[in-house]
Design a protein around this nucleic acid. Structure first.
Length: 338
RNA sequence: CUCCCAUUGAC
């Protein structure tokens, strides 16, 4: 059973949730009894592919088995239901737990977040405080993300206070969340104050700050920051490029856009789906439908956003025939069209 | 073998 478990967890940790689920099924066909670690792996796998029906099925299976449902398993079930989009199921498990720890609360708050229920997430945090459960770093990360998602600066500042009172140091993890929260809430000055005080911001923190400016109409500042990031030899990733390409699109700066494209190639990010659609959109907005088309053709796996970016590009450039032709092709693909 | 966590794309 330990070998099966190791394999299942291995697949889950390498983004092969489907494979992990298949292994879990195969293991039982071969009459190996799952233990609690097996179920943890299975729940993680199901969560990663967001398979609600299977979540319920395996949850039932656990209850009918000999395996004792402890806090750890309960937490992982809450997490799984949250990630499968069923806050009701998560809530039922959470409410039915005989004992909870901080991870139970974190998983439940995280579930609300994933289901786009930021207000409920913050309400649960409040309840957690009332019940005198000590928040952990993950708690703060979750509630700051909740504030960012509902753009609630007041509550965000309040939680910032809690972070300071709790004595946690301003590391990249917490700092990144604060930068993101302040930027999304429109308070770029406070976001930058935190950013500049950080001693060694990692790529995520830079990205949050760059995206913050890019989305607030301060595209030039976003690009400037991106260039600073390169100077400081912080390695950009696909998130960086998507954010900067967006800034270039908004100000229709073809020259800058081309330079960013070149850097994306240098760092091996050019065929990431988000970067691909960002490039197509950028070239189209900057007036070069030819470049947009070339990027589109170079992409192997095209998702719905990439197709739509290209389609929109043709339409915006008055290329009706090309747009319709693309649409025909698009219909032959297996895409979730809206 | 062992549960929770931040930053990015089109219409």
């Amino acid at each position: 059973v330990v070998s099966w478990n190791a394999m299942i967890h291995g697949y889950v940790n390498n983004e092969h949730g489907q494979k992990a689920v298949e292994l879990f099924a195969q293991m039982q066909r071969e009459q190996v009894e799952p233990n609690s670690v097996t179920f943890l792996g299975a729940f993680n796998a199901i969560a990663s592919i967001s398979a609600l029906e299977m979540a319920r099925y395996v949850h039932c299976q656990l209850i009918q088995s000999e395996v004792h449902l402890d806090v750890t398993l309960g937490n992982s079930i809450i997490d799984m239901y949250g990630k499968c989009g069923s806050i009701e199921d998560a809530c039922r498990v959470f409410n039915g737990m005989p004992t909870r720890n901080v991870i139970s609360w974190n998983a439940m708050i995280g579930g609300y977040l994933k289901c786009n229920q930021g207000i409920e997430a913050l309400e649960l945090y409040k309840q957690m405080n009332e019940e005198h459960v000590n928040p952990s770093v993950v708690t703060f990360v979750n509630v700051l993300t909740a504030c960012a998602s509902i753009r609630c600066l007041e509550e965000g500042k309040h939680i910032h206070e809690h972070v300071i009172q709790s004595g946690y140091e301003m590391d990249n993890h917490i700092g990144g969340c604060l930068v993101d929260m302040y930027s999304k809430c429109g308070d770029l000055d406070d976001a930058y104050k935190i950013f500049e005080k950080m001693c060694a911001p990692n790529v995520v923190v830079w990205n949050a700050m760059i995206a913050g400016y890019a989305k607030s109409g301060e595209e030039k500042t976003a690009i400037k920051l991106y260039l600073q990031m390169l100077e400081k030899h912080v390695k950009p990733d696909s998130v960086t490029f998507v954010a900067v390409l967006n800034a270039c699109s908004s100000i229709a700066s073809l020259e800058e856009g081309r330079r960013v494209h070149q850097k994306a190639i240098n760092f091996g990010c050019e065929s990431e789906p988000f970067v691909g659609s960002g490039l197509i959109h950028m070239y189209s907005k900057c007036g070069s439908i030819e470049d947009a088309c070339q990027v589109f053709k170079s992409l192997r796996a095209c998702d719905i956003v990439i197709w739509t970016s290209m389609l929109d590009g043709y339409a915006m450039h008055g290329l009706g025939k090309e747009a319709l032709c693309l649409f025909e092709q698009m219909c032959k693909e297996d895409l979730p069209m809206s």
